[in-house]
Design a binder for these strands. Structure first.
Lengths: 196, 196, 196, 196
DNA sequence: CATGAATGAGACTTCATTCAT
DNA sequence: AATGAATGAAGTCTCATTCAT
């Protein structure tokens, strides 16, 4: 009860949804479980959300906002590309470690309960890719990055690797310091594998 | 009829399963749809597979075997690490382009309908990681690769990026020549982003 | 509606189950028929019983309780064996005539849908036999009954004949006064067929 | 194979049906199980019997014929009623012990898969009752039996008790000598329970 | 005649959603 | 606004029966 003080029903339900969806996935979650986790009646959910699908969608949108707010809360314009990549990586990793349930639904839930949600996810994906491409273009224009590599390939590679880190961190308890991991990953991205 | 010549029912069903599961996902696929896609009756599937779950599992196992057979069909022991990474990448990309449906279920289907399958997927994942680590260790011992980066991080990064390529190739019709893509990716991995 | 006043859903369902199971038997009864007989939706049954089998089991247990409560509701300790047998017989017959559907499932339903229920039925059977044997032993000790007959055979014979009466009474509308029937049956049991 | 020499397919199938139906009951028996028990193909059964129901029916009819042939194979017209009852009882008991599977389906299978079979069973029942009544009437006319008891009640009691003996004999391995049991039962029927 | 692979009607059961209280 | 008992559409799986070989 104490933890619910000051929270509206909508927030309580979304939090319960994150908790249950992240553990069981969309199709294996029953509305009643979410209601129980929220400490409310089954019917009440429908006062705030039209359907199971809308609840899931709202949860994803809310979660992504939290993620984006966290990621963008950095003023890195003046820094070197290497540093910016490192900071971005570190922010992502810290987010994952501090929001394990949220992370599971955001990056792990690859189920696409329906077409609409699928398209929404695709749009998110494209948006992220564009931002990453912009960053790379800026780096090239500044003369810090090579210009002979395909930008689509690069942004894809970097974004997906970053995103993929959620798994060992959250699911397998990979014990690695976020700062060290970021430094190493940025080093790898910038300098490659080859022995100097 | 002509398309079924020379194929056993089991194969026909697996193919239909790949087709439908890859389009709709596990939970949104009805057994009847698979039966229709296979051109057979609903009950016939149960002559060959115990349940929907077992069908899905069999399909995944079969698909992975096809993938592995393709990937391992290379003798690259004597080549440089750079070349080996490039060839591995190329093999993966060609597989994706030539087996679009198979690719969708293997890399896109992140649903894990039940615990057993989840564990099976985890085991696969760990196996692939180990192989990649072995490759990197070999590269380090040969003196071709840096030894100051965390191996877990590296193998994770490389594998996931590779795997991630399936999406733009199969879902977004990314028109890029497999050979060129492989060369670029290997270059990126080996030399990094930094301008020389 | 009027007929349901004061009854919980569970009771309504059990009553409907008695009605339908007694007419069609376990395997020929569909859950939907019971739901219709109860005037409720198919799914509602599952709010009160886990499965068809559990419903059947609960119905049998409930019915037997009603039967036993009725049979044991007699203080006959001081009477002669002949009277006790007669009263037992009469109670049984009256129960059958007043609870025709219940009687059909209790004595007519020899189907044992599964192993567990079979064992339960066997246990009931043994319990009844033991009670009858105790009664006979008491009669022998009192000097009222012969002691040269096998007790197992006797208790079996008496119980089964009694039980068997349900059929002509309920299924064939045997028009015989319960009191007269009891008197005759007790006479037969006590004195035998032989002409004096 | 040796055991099938000289037997037609029809007989083989009926024997297999007795075996399986007696163990599992009508509804829990699959046609395939019978086919396997008969050592033939599933489809072959349908060459000899129209349906599962007809097979069951045929099996019951055949079995009952075997039973009746055995029971009637006695010339007892000149004997006393007491002796006749004893011999009838003994014949029944010996049949049960020597034809355990047959006994299970004949007396234990109270499932009535459909209406037609139910009616057939009722007809059998009435026939047996009539024969028993005739016997009792003869006894009365001869002056051996009492005439003050209801004949319907008597024939019912005796027949059912007799029939009921199958259970402890076949299902519970009641170790009692058939001759002794018959003597005791006939004694009980003739002289009753009362101490002389 | 014999077979058994194929079939699809039919039964149980689940669970998102509704609505009377 | 909140509830949860009730609902019934929908999906999985079984198995008697058919029929091409």
């Amino acid at each position: 009860m104490a933890s619910k003080r000051g929270k509206g029903k909508r927030e309580i339900i979304i939090e319960a949804a994150i908790q249950v969806f992240s553990q069981k996935g969309y199709h294996n979650t029953r509305m009643e479980e979410i209601a129980q986790a929220a400490g409310i009646g089954k019917g009440t959910i429908y006062e705030y959300f039209d359907s199971k699908l809308h609840l899931f969608q709202s949860m994803m949108e809310d979660s992504l906002q939290v993620y984006f707010r966290r990621m963008e809360n950095q003023r890195t314009d003046q820094m070197s590309m290497s540093t910016r990549l490192r900071l971005m990586c570190e922010a992502h990793i810290r987010f994952c470690l501090e929001n394990r349930e949220l992370t599971k639904v955001l990056f792990g839930e690859a189920e696409t309960p329906d077409k609409e949600l699928m398209e929404w996810a695709m749009a998110m994906r494209k948006d992220k890719l564009k931002r990453m491409q912009s960053l790379l273009v800026e780096g090239i224009e500044r003369g810090e990055l090579r210009s002979d590599l395909d930008l689509h390939m690069l942004s894809f590679s970097i974004l997906h690797t970053l995103a993929a880190f959620w798994f060992p961190l959250v699911m397998e308890d990979w014990q690695m310091d976020p700062e060290l991991l970021s430094v190493q990953y940025a080093d790898f991205i910038m300098n490659g594998l080859k022995k100097a």
